[in-house]
Design a protein around this nucleic acid. Structure first.
Length: 464
RNA sequence: GCCCGGGUGGUGUAGCGGCCUAUCAUUGAGCCCUGUCGAGGCUCGGACUCGGGUUCAAAUCCCGACCUGGGCGCCA
């Protein structure tokens, strides 16, 4: 097995994708006639390579038959390469075979690079050999050239094909880069990445509905969040931990911003207060925006990304209620914010902001009560369109936590595994959970959360 | 869960009681064309979600089921 690792040499030819991914890993494929282990990506070839012998491989994106000359547009991860066949100078067998390859078939082509001003990238490939590695069926489930649109439902049914489109491909490359940026950011600040169980026993922090599953002879549930576990690891002495993992909510909601399986970035930090983790959160968001703003593939999303300035605006829950009332919407102190209330605030404020000092009653038992008030040291990070994250200073006193759990009508006994961690040395700590999909959809101005998940799970969809 | 929409070739649509043997685009098959880049031109193929009802007549109206888009609720 041969593995080649290359780094693109010339910055100007580095593609949208290679902007981030500059290491390649190619293995030789057995049973192939063409030596494609040395294949080049379409963007690695330029007019300067005139006369060079190269191999490319990819999908047949389009075919343009002009009679005496035939163009085959081959698409790979990095872009498109034009393969040009002149009837008179190319072998008849190859010419006929190229014309017959169905669109979206996977081909490997070996040939000579020709500098050509009339060609899209300034070069074209004059083929000597072509191998069809996988012939595609004739009628495609979607048009991926962008001539005819497709509804989201149709696209999700054929998601593997939908990801071949430029827009969708770049959404998921951006998603990958966002997750890497988050990891790099937290890693640089001394965080330890943890993995906590997704199959849990009944005890839950409340609020949302859980998915029951069969765990051998017992009933178990899919975890709604890593909250309890990440706090327990604070007692372990890791000081700063994070997890990026799926969370499961069995709510039968049917909206453009809810999923039954979502991804969450969860952070927990010891020896700090809610104020510090808010600063961490806004710095992280700004860092993600600035990284994505530099991504060349952003142009495929028709988006001008503005990096938000830190610090974000902070308003208290009480101030939020006043703003909502001023706008003529009914709300009482103590109520959670409705969708329309969130929209009113979003419209009024018009940028990312925090809502702080929430009433104790509408925040979970682990949020630290503010001394002498009926509020707690909890915050939500809001985008004008929707909530992105929520967090708080945590209760670290065993007694208070136990009391809080019971006052919410939950059984302290079923939380014993969690409460125990507070009995033998638990530092003060604070943290938050951030919805990955919501960050992506709000940042990229995408209306439906399903667009930013490869294979979304919602009320109705379990396949693919 | 509630309230509004919608289900027509592979895809996206027009038609909304008889002019429907169903429109247009794209895709597919085939033909013409030597510089395309959403190539162009010509020929052909391909659809009314399912079940019940109303009517002389249903893609079109009514009822139900299923699927689906949006708003709200729940929730993050």
């Amino acid at each position: 097995m041969v593995i080649l690792i290359r780094v693109p040499e010339r910055d100007k030819h580095v593609s949208a994708t290679a902007f981030f991914i500059n290491i390649k890993n190619r293995a030789k494929i057995e049973n192939m006639k063409l030596p494609i282990e040395n294949r080049k990506y379409s963007n690695e070839i330029t007019a300067d390579d005139d006369g060079e012998h190269v191999s490319i491989a990819g999908w047949v994106h389009e075919k343009r038959d002009l009679g005496g000359v035939f163009f085959l547009i081959v698409r790979d991860r990095e872009g498109f390469a034009q393969v040009t066949l002149h009837k008179k100078t190319i072998g008849k067998e190859l010419f006929e075979r190229a014309k017959k390859v169905p669109r979206e078939s996977v081909v490997a082509i070996e040939g000579i690079v020709k500098s050509e001003q009339k060609a899209p990238n300034g070069y074209e490939l004059i083929p000597e050999q072509m191998e069809v590695l996988s012939e595609a069926s004739h009628v495609l489930p979607l048009d991926i050239t962008g001539k005819v649109g497709a509804e989201l439902d149709t696209r999700l049914d054929a998601r593997f094909m939908d990801v071949r489109t430029e827009r969708t491909k770049h959404i998921f490359i951006i998603r990958s880069r966002v997750l890497k940026t988050i990891r790099d950011f937290l890693d640089a600040r001394g965080f330890i990445e943890i993995n906590t169980p997704k199959i849990v026993s009944a005890a839950t922090e409340g609020g949302t509905a859980l998915f029951p599953i069969t765990y051998f002879e017992r009933e178990a549930f899919l975890n709604q969040s890593p909250q309890l576990y990440k706090q327990m690891l604070i007692a372990s002495g890791f000081d700063s931990v994070f997890e990026i993992a799926p969370i499961f909510r069995a709510e039968e909601h049917d909206t453009t911003k809810h999923l039954n399986e979502a991804s969450s970035v969860d952070v927990e930090v010891a020896f700090v207060s809610d104020k510090e983790v808010m600063k961490l959160l806004e710095a992280l968001i700004a860092s993600v925006y600035s990284k994505v703003a530099l991504y060349p593939g952003l142009s495929k999303l028709n988006l001008q990304l503005e990096v938000p300035k830190v610090p974000f605006r902070r308003i208290t829950y009480g101030e939020a209620i006043e703003l909502i009332l001023e706008a003529g919407e009914q709300i009482e102190w103590g109520e959670d914010l409705s969708t329309s209330a969130e929209h009113i605030l979003g419209k009024t404020i018009g940028e990312l902001y925090f809502i702080t000092d929430w009433p104790r009653a509408i925040k979970p038992f682990y949020a630290q009560p503010t001394e002498g008030k009926d509020t707690c040291d909890a915050f939500d990070l809001m985008h004008p369109r929707l909530e992105l994250a929520s967090g708080s200073q945590r209760v670290h006193s065993y007694e208070l936590l136990k009391e809080n759990i019971e006052s919410k009508g939950l059984s302290a006994k079923s939380f014993e595994f969690y409460l125990n961690a507070f009995r033998y040395g638990m530092p003060p700590h604070a943290g938050w959970g951030l919805g990955v999909e919501r960050l992506l959809m709000s940042m990229l101005e995408i209306d439906n959360v399903r667009e930013v998940v490869l294979f979304p799970r919602d009320r109705r969809r379990l396949v693919p």
